[in-house]
């Protein structure tokens, strides 16, 4: 098979798999299934397939793809640290309806009625950070070499998608969280910070392989 076509197929598979994770929570909240099922049969397989595609890209020396996967995932995780700082401050100030990673954890472990446990918190936070990695992968595969502010705009789009999703609707905070003063600014600020960090790191790492991290 033509190398170019192979690279495109690998990139498309990674994009499709990366798109699964962020959609699971909204789909579960919309009543299309439950998180334990989604986690077992969609989330874990999608992560495994992305890992497989990364190894395949490495083996076939599709460096442009493997680097974007690596950089996107890592930059996305670091961007999520920035997002989390804003989110936690917003939550402590009472501007958010709930502690999202903990909520994700109880949904994934099917223990909503019991409340969070250490294990459910670990899973919830891992899933939240993986979502950051997945959005990072999507960004680097599509827009990787663009300046940092492309990342910030990307963050705004993700924040808007979140506010419009059934995940927010199910929390009873009105359209886009408008019943809870402070939620919209927190969500947008957190996602702009996420996107800006992602965009900056992706730009630096993809253009200069040795910048901060040798990959």
């Amino acid at each position: 098979m033509n190398t170019r076509i192979s690279k495109i197929i690998v990139a498309l598979v990674v994009l499709a798999m990366a798109g699964i994770s962020p959609n699971l929570y909204p789909a579960a909240m919309a009543g299309y299934g439950d998180m334990p099922f989604f986690s077992k049969w969609l989330l874990i397989p999608s992560i495994v397939i992305i890992g497989g595609m990364f190894l395949l890209a490495k083996k076939q020396q599709y460096n442009i793809i493997s680097r974007r996967i690596w950089v996107g995932a890592l930059a996305g995780i670091i961007g999520t640290v920035g997002l989390e700082i804003i989110r936690i401050i917003g939550f402590k100030m009472g501007w958010m309806p709930g502690d999202l990673p903990k909520l994700l954890g109880v949904l994934m472990t099917d223990r909503f009625m019991k409340g969070p446990s250490t294990w459910s918190n670990i899973l919830g936070y891992t899933y939240h950070y993986w979502n950051g990695a997945a959005f990072g992968l999507i960004y680097t595969l599509i827009l990787g070499y663009k300046p940092w502010w492309y990342g910030a705009i990307y963050g705004i789009l993700i924040g808007t998608g979140f506010l419009l999703s059934p995940a927010v609707n199910a929390m009873g905070v009105g359209f886009m969280g408008s019943d809870l003063p402070g939620m919209i600014p927190v969500v947008y600020t957190a996602h702009v910070v996420f996107g800006a960090i992602l965009g900056y790191l992706a730009y630096k790492w993809l253009r200069n392989n040795a910048w901060l991290l040798k990959m």
Binding site: M29, A30, G31, Y32, F112, M113, P166, N169, A170, M171, G172, V173, G174
Partner: peptide, 13 residues
């Protein structure tokens, strides 16, 4: 379950 979400509620159990 779908209607619950559409009406700003969550199924807790």
């Amino acid at each position: 379950k779908k209607m619950v979400s559409n009406n700003g509620m969550m199924v807790m159990g």
